[in-house]
Computed example of a mutant assay.
Amino acid sequence: MKATQEIHAKFSRSLLHPRYWLTWFGIGILYLLVLLPYGVIYQIGKTLGLLSMKIAKRRVVIATRNLELCFPDKSEQERAQLLRENFISTGIAIFETGMAWFWSDRRIAKHSTTIGVENILEPQEHNQGVLLVGIHFLTLELGARIIGLARPGIGVYRPNDNPVMDYVQIKGRLKSNKYMLDRRNLKGMIRSLKQGEMLWYAPDHDYGPKNSVFVPFFAVEKAATTVGTSILVKMADPNIVPFTPKRDKKGYTLVIQPALVGFPKDDETAAAAFMNKAIEKEILQAPEQYMWLHRRFKTRPKGEPSLYD
């Protein structure tokens, strides 16, 4: 598959090979579980999340360290409570992926409220592209589906190594997107934005040293941050619109912010720091629902020690 292609879901008989039967079985179980009432799904996810704290010890260590690095002013007790809530959120997120892929539009709408939808609709009425800043909340998959009810966009994703999971993932995401683009497809992203499309884009992870600069992220002074946002803004001049999907026991509130103002187009380092500040603001709306389980600060400036040793 070439990175320049628009990606659509394509089924083939090879996906029915016995080597994939276990994958299909797991997908089937997830499909059946998300047919349950939302309150039941929430409680099962909560239980699973708390259980994972006892099993996934390495992830507990990573999340604990991230919270220490980002929130040094919080007490140890406060961070411990945040960690517990984060693992609960992680357990629920497993089912939210299935909800995003398998729920009907009617059921998605029943359990969600969207605030600020005009911030993505108005620019597109004037044929202006929208760079939708999809921060890695654990609710992100479902948040993208909720936005798709208002306006389908263009999804950016990393292909899954398992072809069955890749097929199901693409098929599920196409319920809220016109098509998908490989995350390496910079030309495709620029083209879609110039055509006035809404492009889902997540600049908040550590993508390695290539095409990154070191700027502050919360209390970490040198966090590897992609310069990809600068490239897209320079080439396509889109509206930059963050959004946050927040969960509670009754459902989801999706907050779409007004377009960011003051993006420093001529300075990649300043632009990366600007984006991190915007991302921090969104994370603080629901910090327990952010993906703290990955090593956000694994890339360090040359000669500096790891923050996870």
Rank of each mutant, 00 (worst) to 15 (best):
V61L: 13
V61H: 07
I62D: 08
I62Y: 00
A63Q: 04
R65N: 12
R65L: 11
R65T: 11
L67V: 05
L67M: 07
L67K: 03
E68C: 08
E68R: 01
E68I: 04
L69I: 04
C70R: 00
C70Y: 00
P72E: 14
P72F: 01
P72D: 13
D73E: 15
K74C: 15
K74H: 15
K74S: 15
S75R: 04
S75Q: 10
E76H: 12
Q77P: 15
E78N: 11
E78D: 14
R79L: 09
R79G: 12
L82Q: 06
L82I: 02
L83H: 09
R84M: 08
R84C: 05
R84Q: 12
R84E: 10
E85V: 03
E85A: 05
E85H: 13
N86H: 09
N86E: 06
N86W: 07
F87N: 02
F87I: 00
F87T: 00
F87A: 00
I88F: 14
I88D: 06
S89Y: 00
T90K: 11
T90V: 12
T90D: 12
T90C: 14
T90P: 15
G91S: 11
G91V: 02
I92R: 08
I92Q: 12
I92K: 05
I92T: 10
I92E: 11
A93M: 07
A93R: 05
I94F: 07
I94R: 09
E96Q: 01
E96R: 00
T97Y: 05
T97L: 13
T97I: 14
G98E: 15
G98V: 13
G98T: 12
M99L: 06
M99I: 09
M99H: 03
A100M: 09
F102V: 05
W103V: 00
W103R: 02
S104A: 09
S104I: 08
D105F: 15
D105Q: 11
D105T: 06
D105G: 06
R106G: 13
R106H: 15
R106A: 12
